[in-house]
Nucleic acid binder design. Structure first.
Lengths: 121, 121
DNA sequence: AGCACAAATGAAAATGATTTTCATTCCCAT
DNA sequence: ATGGGAATGAAAATCATTTTCATTTGTGCT
């Protein structure tokens, strides 16, 4: 396995906590950091595994990474500008639990995301 | 520009109204249809422009196309054996709608999936 | 210090979806 | 028939991401 390179996390923070792997890489280069693209990808992945960052997708399919609070939440994402709002998902938690029980599933987790066009766009 | 090849739409329908471009292509090939991958992409894009289909992204970034207004369902997936159950998601629809309104979003869609370990595993 | 071994790194190649190019074919109105 | 625009698709180009693999770095041990 591999651990995250701390400079990657620090750069992601400096980027406003919201950037693609390529962007983090270019940013580090511009700042004179010596790092390989591979390491950036690996570090981001590892941060995702550790649930320190969240990954979502731009409309063009590029993955964007963002720091996120530790509480379990969901996202409301603008398809146009990428603006993201963290929302509460109590209804989902309950739904997931009920559905899983109904079908005899255990160790249940879920993903849910809402997307649309925000008021500014 | 280009108009959509009707066989592409028909195949997407037959696929359950939910498939990636590559899947539509492979499906058409398997059924003996003579069509190029390029045409599949172009047709799907055109269907998106005409708002006949919706596009979202899988976790791996692959674009999946879905017939609009399709009463869509959600999945309960076993992490161990991959078995999948289609479940009803009325609660989610409502949740998505409320959350979106609350934050001034429009043209809202959503994704939701539950995963766990099924009774057989 | 010197040695061994695991983890980290990054350049380059591989992968895979999607897009672009461009030459060819099809279709339709004259 | 014929000329021109639309549709098609094979092949090449793009681009993010992953994999490979050889090299470097770090760490514990003697």
């Amino acid at each position: 396995m591999s651990r995250s390179n701390p400079r990657v996390l620090s750069t992601l923070e400096r980027a406003g906590g919201f950037a693609s792997a390529q962007e983090v890489y270019r940013l580090m280069q511009r700042e004179g950091e010596s790092i390989g693209l591979t390491t950036v990808y690996r570090s981001l992945q590892s941060l995702v595994n550790d649930k320190i960052v969240d990954v979502l997708r731009r409309d063009d399919g590029e993955a964007i990474y963002r720091l996120c609070g530790d509480a379990h939440h969901h996202h409301l994402v603008c398809k146009s500008c990428g603006d993201t709002v963290e929302i509460e998902g109590g209804a989902i938690e309950k739904w997931a639990k009920v559905m899983a029980e109904e079908h005899g599933f255990r160790d249940v987790g879920h993903t849910a995301e809402i997307f649309g066009i925000c008021s500014k766009c």
